[in-house]
């Protein structure tokens, strides 16, 4: 059972990696900010699988923390975008 769960974790991680490649290439910033989102969900899945595979219940707490904070990056990004900083633009 442990081998299967670890293997599944590996598979999910590979899927996340593939998605990451696509997302980081953009083209818009809003695309890129999906990367933490993707890693949030995928990372939680990997951690839960590993917790079950290795029988370390405390690892679930790590997943719990990630789940709590999963939306933070997106929210911070949207709020910061909404209020561009004062200060003159850099010369091209």
């Amino acid at each position: 059972m442990g081998e299967f769960l670890t293997g599944s974790a590996c598979f999910v991680l590979a899927m996340v990696a593939l998605g990451l490649v696509r997302i980081l290439r953009g083209p818009a910033d809003a695309d890129r900010i999906m990367a933490p989102q993707l890693l949030g969900t995928g990372g939680i899945a990997v951690l839960l699988l590993l917790a079950a595979a290795t029988g370390a219940p405390a690892v679930v707490d790590v997943a719990l923390s990630l789940a709590l904070l999963a939306a933070f990056a997106s929210v911070a990004f949207v709020l910061a975008k909404g209020s561009p900083a004062p200060g003159k633009a850099d010369e091209p």
Binding site: A30, I33, I44, L69, A71
Partner: peptide, 21 residues
Amino acid sequence: AVWLLAQLAGATATQVLARAV
């Protein structure tokens, strides 16, 4: 609980990101 929290985060992030897009 982890799944529910992830759902909530996913829903919110999608909402605000879609607006940003």
